[in-house]
Design a protein around this nucleic acid. Sequence first.
DNA 1: GTGATTTGTTTGGATAAACCACATATTACA
DNA 2: TGTAATATGTGGTTTATCCAAACAAATCAC
Lengths: 410, 410
Amino acid sequence: MAQIPAADSSRPARRGNNLDDVRRNNLAVVLGISHARGRVSRAELTRATGLNRSTIGALVAELVELGLVDEAEPSATKLAGRPSPVIVPREDVVAIAVNPEIDAVTIALVGLSGRVLSRIRHDTAAAPSAEEVVAIVAAAVAGMRGELGASTRFVGVGLAVPGLVRASDGVVILAPHLGWRDVPIAEMLAAELQLPVTAANDASAGVVAESQYGAGRGARGLVYLNGGASGIGGGIALDGQLFEGAAGYAGEFGHTFVNSAGSPCHCGASGCLETEVRRAPLLALLGLDNTRSEELEETLLAHLARPEGPDAAVAALLERQSGFLAIALRNIVNALNPELVLLGGFLGTLYAVAPERLSGAVSRSALPGAGDGVRFGRAELGNELLVVGAALLAFKPVLEDPASVAAPAG
Amino acid sequence: MAQIPAADSSRPARRGNNLDDVRRNNLAVVLGISHARGRVSRAELTRATGLNRSTIGALVAELVELGLVDEAEPSATKLAGRPSPVIVPREDVVAIAVNPEIDAVTIALVGLSGRVLSRIRHDTAAAPSAEEVVAIVAAAVAGMRGELGASTRFVGVGLAVPGLVRASDGVVILAPHLGWRDVPIAEMLAAELQLPVTAANDASAGVVAESQYGAGRGARGLVYLNGGASGIGGGIALDGQLFEGAAGYAGEFGHTFVNSAGSPCHCGASGCLETEVRRAPLLALLGLDNTRSEELEETLLAHLARPEGPDAAVAALLERQSGFLAIALRNIVNALNPELVLLGGFLGTLYAVAPERLSGAVSRSALPGAGDGVRFGRAELGNELLVVGAALLAFKPVLEDPASVAAPAG
DNA sequence: GTGATTTGTTTGGATAAACCACATATTACA
DNA sequence: TGTAATATGTGGTTTATCCAAACAAATCAC
């Protein structure tokens, strides 16, 4: 009878746990719930975590000591019993969110409470270079610092980049629209701001935000596809956490093959989702210029509602693009069996004009099981999406190990 | 400034940890390493887990008490110092692995040591019904029981089914080649054998086996595609664990879209990988009958090595099928950024005849980052694959919580 | 007010892992 | 053959964690 070969030791074995890990984990759980829900009473924390009342008391006291949360007066309930103090994440624990785009750099300060404290959009004449981004961010942060109280603590920087970003060190491998290639932007920003920097693809930041605060709340397995002016990006979130893959590049659904007779794509292949499903042809048909996506959607819905019915070319284009999108989604559903598929940007519009057409096509063409279990939806975080996603990237180390942040000076 | 909406409470918050959890986790880690490596010294466990010597001593003692491992004499090393006892998983802790196929049911007993203790292939005239499978398994297990010592403990049953299996309750939603639809096979087997039963898709079982014992050892993110007589199945393993998706259906790469002009597939769509890349046309061209895959590969390699070169039709077919496979793999690499892609069965043959052609095509057509980081390989577990994979499914509860198994009677 | 209910607080207890000192078993080398 | 060096098991002690229980406090219902 065969003996199965023994596994080698190349995969590092799971480490053992000690008591420190217990504490660290429990602090992270409590801070995580507090951060996710905004306001929680100690009693709610007790129920959610399954920990003892006294343990929660001690954990919360330590988080207060660390300057990460405040204990506030109990909020009025209609229940009998002693009121339970409310835990709120401190707003003066702040992440810096940065999003360089083709014609602007957006910088925002986001509190641990989830509030966007301030936000600047710095327009640029051309696509900014990495050096320009660093300079713009440094100036913007210096300016915003003054508006905030002296107690403000910056815990890190989160960067959402429209391109491929290596997760391990935050190097931008390729960002065609910015013209970047192998740019160590995270390192550069970290040197300038003296803060830890986490960089990720913009759609990855988006899926994290949607997963925790947006239409993906509560979904355990979430796939996100976003159609922007520059192409189609995407991301995968499992249990609220970004799925990175081996090196951080997972989620590039824009280059899913959907058409044998398709156009060549800048990626080198042809027939990619991104080349077949684009905003531009629709804008041209509707006589629109390079507009915001809200405007496109309004115009499109109005067009479809015309008494004489939609133009044949418009209807055909929608039909064709929905078909290609359905093919890509079918692949994704079969491969990943997600609970929820979220569509943003232009793809959200495509979904919105005929939700049934798209979801029906996918459910019918995907395999039973995965196909009939999946839900579809639109991304709901608009403007705030990338800013919040980037901030979540920056907060991640704190949320995973609250005790690792230096306690406040005072 | 915007306030991000608070997350609702629909996603159950992560639970807190207590000391029991620490112990449970550490027991699982120690047993897991022991199971994966086959033979480990206590000293090696100490280094791998990062735990204290005395803690490892206590954990191992508890596992011995539970009857899951034995402590054996130290094996000779060339190192100075006191020899460290060796921990070996007990062979009389046994899982029952079951694999129903179109023309046979395979039943095997697999020890926690990883050894296949016995194995029966029960041929059937036609595809077996669920009732027949239950009867065959019951008879086989009764027969094999006699061969084993009285100390043998059965911890569970693992079932690898060629079809879609709902992970939560082991119901086979659809197994076209068996003619099963909504069959509660896990429940039926559990009632008969009075043991916990875990069922999964056969490729899912395969990827787990390859990930832990086969060509996927050490890979953190692994994608597996297998070409069998009945189609193409697949699975995803992350850190040695099966990625199930929302309900256990993840990994159906056989229905990836690869050809707009493709044939209709039994799944309802058309142009699926499974319809475009098949064994049958190649067998026909080579004048082979319905042979084993080893035979196909030998014949094919011999044909390609002919002095006059391969037949043009054969070369064209290989080129064509490799091209479609490359398209599917490109999609998968872009979407999941796996570390390793493993090909089994007919797809392994297709890869083996020209590894460079396939891996080169994928690396070039996938996006930089994901494309140039991925490795390709052949699945290396042949006959044992499904049996080992099914057994791993059955052992999973024990490996996750060793203390949950009843201590041996003796 | 009085009682029921819920929750914070305090204290003591159980438990798990770390730490330390010492015993033990092997190799290296004179 | 004997001694030193090295690595590892063993047992007692310490430390940190969470839990359980008793008590105190704050609210609601009547």
